[in-house]
Amino acid sequence: MTFVLSLVVGTLFAGAAYLMLRRSVVKLILGMALLSHGTNLLLFLMGDGVVKGMPPFVDEATGVTPTAAADPLNQALILTAIVINFGFTAFILALAYRANQAVGSDDLDDMVETDRL
């Protein structure tokens, strides 16, 4: 399972790199979304959740944490990262929309006003 998921992470990163190297802003944003998903999956792989597989909850009846309970920290990290990425994706979508309005183009090569001497 770990091996398969690592392949998925790699594929996501590759797709992200491909999309981000395109000139279209929309593809750039899609690429960044893929990149963040790949990163979240990588964070997940860094814990023992794949191997152990039990949710990290204390048993209500006995008050004991099961030995197969996964490390909860990774999941907390992923949740934080997802929330942050959610906010940033929304922001960058709005920004790209406004930039598209101002420039009249989706092409990054047309957004050169700040680079001109």
């Binding site: 990149l35 963040s36 990163t39 860094m46 920290l73 960058i92 420039v103 700040t114």
Partner: peptide
């Protein structure tokens, strides 16, 4: 501002993602 901001946002988010990957690997 919108053009410069877009570049600022994208490249900084790339840096952040690298930070996150590093933190995840380090935790591993």
């Amino acid at each position: 501002q919108l053009e410069g901001g877009l570049k600022y946002v994208v490249l900084n988010l790339l840096g952040s993602t690298s930070f996150l990957v590093g933190a995840g690997l380090l935790y591993g």
